[in-house]
C-alpha cells in the first residue's frame, strides 16, 4: 500500500508491505512515520464529522465521540443521514448511540433549540 505520512509537513511518501505477517514501512524519514504507516495498514481510524437533519428543516453538526474504523465510515455516514431530530440538544449530547456498531456515539457539536413548525 502507498500513502503519505501526515504526522508532519514533510509528507513522506510511504510504501507499506506485509510478508509472513510482518508489516514493513519504507520511505519514512523518522520513526513516527513507521508507526503511522503500520496503523494505517493494519487498523486505520477516522473521526467522522457530519450533519443530521432536523424535522421541519435545518441541520445540526455532529461528530463521533472518537475515531472509528475507516471501513465503518460509509455506514456511519448512512446512519447519520437517517437521523431526523425532533427535540432540543446541547453540544456533547448523544444523537445516535453506537453508530454503525463502531462502539462510538454520534454526538452534537453545537446546541440546537428545536421549535415545532
Amino acid at each position: 500500500m502507498d500513502t503519505t505520512c501526515i504526522m508532519c509537513p514533510m509528507g513522506c511518501a510511504l510504501t507499506i508491505t506485509e510478508e509472513n505477517g510482518v508489516v514493513t514501512v519504507t520511505g519514512n524519514t523518522c520513526p513516527r512515520g513507521a508507526k503511522y504507516g503500520v496503523s494505517e495498514y493494519t487498523d486505520p481510524k477516522r473521526m467522522v464529522t457530519t450533519l443530521v437533519k432536523v424535522r421541519g428543516g435545518g441541520v445540526l453538526s455532529v461528530k463521533t465521540s472518537a475515531p472509528i474504523r475507516k471501513t465503518l465510515v460509509p455506514a456511519a455516514l448512512k446512519a447519520a443521514a437517517g437521523v431526523l431530530l425532533d427535540h432540543s440538544v446541547h453540544a456533547g449530547d448523544v444523537v445516535l448511540a453506537d453508530v454503525a456498531g463502531s462502539g462510538e456515539d454520534l454526538i452534537a457539536t453545537a446546541d440546537l433549540v428545536y421549535t415545532e413548525k
Binding site: M47, T49, T50, S61, T109, A110
Partner: peptide
C-alpha cells in the same frame, strides 16, 4: 467549519469549528 482539527495548539485537544467558537 463542522470538521475537526481546531484548537490543538490553543486548547491541547481537537475540536470542531462550532465547538471552538462555543
Amino acid at each position: 467549519c463542522i470538521h475537526n482539527g481546531f484548537g490543538l495548539h490553543y486548547f491541547g485537544e481537537e475540536l470542531t469549528g462550532p465547538e471552538y467558537a462555543e
